[in-house]
Write a protein that binds this DNA or RNA. Sequence first.
DNA 1: CTTGACCTTGACGTAAGGGCAGGGGTTCTA
DNA 2: TAGAACCCCTGCCCTTACGTCAAGGTCAAG
Lengths: 249, 249
Amino acid sequence: MLLIGEIAKLAGVTPRTVRHYHRIGLLAEPERNSSGYRSYGLSALSRLLQIRKLTALGMGLSEVTDALAETDTGAVDVKEILVELDAELADGEADIQRRRAVIARLLEDGDDPTLSPELAAAVRGLELPPREIGMLRAAEVALPEFVDPYLTGAGQDSPWQIWDQKLAALADAEANDPRVGEIAGELYAMLPELLPADVPAELTADQTATVAATARFGQMMLSDMSPGQRRVFELLVEYGRREPEKWGR
Amino acid sequence: MLLIGEIAKLAGVTPRTVRHYHRIGLLAEPERNSSGYRSYGLSALSRLLQIRKLTALGMGLSEVTDALAETDTGAVDVKEILVELDAELADGEADIQRRRAVIARLLEDGDDPTLSPELAAAVRGLELPPREIGMLRAAEVALPEFVDPYLTGAGQDSPWQIWDQKLAALADAEANDPRVGEIAGELYAMLPELLPADVPAELTADQTATVAATARFGQMMLSDMSPGQRRVFELLVEYGRREPEKWGR
DNA sequence: CTTGACCTTGACGTAAGGGCAGGGGTTCTA
DNA sequence: TAGAACCCCTGCCCTTACGTCAAGGTCAAG
């Protein structure tokens, strides 16, 4: 006749755990003594130990319920359960190993863990400000057609790099900043060499395809730009409208 | 300007996840458009991607919060975090490997996964009924001084085995079963060879030490016994009382 | 008689979202 | 012009396997 604390200690669990098993029906409620305390016999302890052995292997409590129900009825599908469980564990193990491999590589290279390997390699040693890196990280998935050339062909002196730097100069500029017009002009002149070769078809078919692509790019970055930078994009679109023959087909 | 579903898809998560990150303060709430929809920019996407990269390594969201706060303030303790995380993952990996080793052994031996290796080896090939095995499983942790000899020295013909079999014959017996007296007498005669050599001191010091030890054993098993078996234990105690000179010091 | 160590039930918290209800928005299509 | 199909909003309950109080009853010892 064991109290809940005693049976729990024998099984290496807390009384709370035993009560939990009662509540979910995994372990039958035992008799109570005259004080209302639960009073356990050896068969309850045996059941509790069975449960613990299986949970220690990594089974969930509902799986344990099933497994014990099967063994109680004599069905010997326990092997099947174990094989299945082992497969799950193998998955988990492979998962952990993948993560650890990534971590090992990060520790070796000293890269920012929040960058893709490609982007990390591209910006390594470039000392870009965090804000620029953040834009690249986002643009890599949101605007891959703009960033991929930057990653593959580009290094220190790519047009994109220069574009970035010119625009970054206006990071804190107001819309009426005197440099806005000048920089807009420079960027406008750079557009032809900057725009990707493989712009989607529906955009190239458009009359002002490149301007539209640029606008899309700008559109997505607008929320993270200074007023001066937004003004630059407005100007770019305006310039494009003035030369439809240059951009249209 | 991305809707929540768009940014979620770009980051490979669900909108629910993004809202979750808002609620716990991991991702700042963005502006709303005229319809009350959240409207995200590239910097939000960047932040979301950072979060995902770190959770993919196995960090919890609170750890991610800390890690990103540190990188935002320029502190480069990310390496430290990664090392710590790797240690945790290594623990988890070792854990899984232990479990898989146990499972592999179980599958090879075909043992009951809910038995200790020692007990499984002891009962292997013995074809004990499940009820007996259950009692052994429980007794192994509750009454080790009674079971250990059974495990180490005992095989098919140990006194314990015989005791078990005699008692098991009354598994469904009522208290007035005619076999009760006979079996009680046999078991009483077996007591000297059955009782463990290393009974705890406070019990050997007692005048009726062995009877008390037996009573303790019986006490714990009572709740799982048939009325006939309980009667046997009552008789054993009675017999012991009749021969105090035999059991006393 | 009090203290301390038990026991009881009940209710809330955890991590990281999943799922549903009830209601509104936008856009395409018949 | 009205559905249909999808998107969005908030709020609430659900999940695992218990941990952690909280408020109160029980029991043996000093």
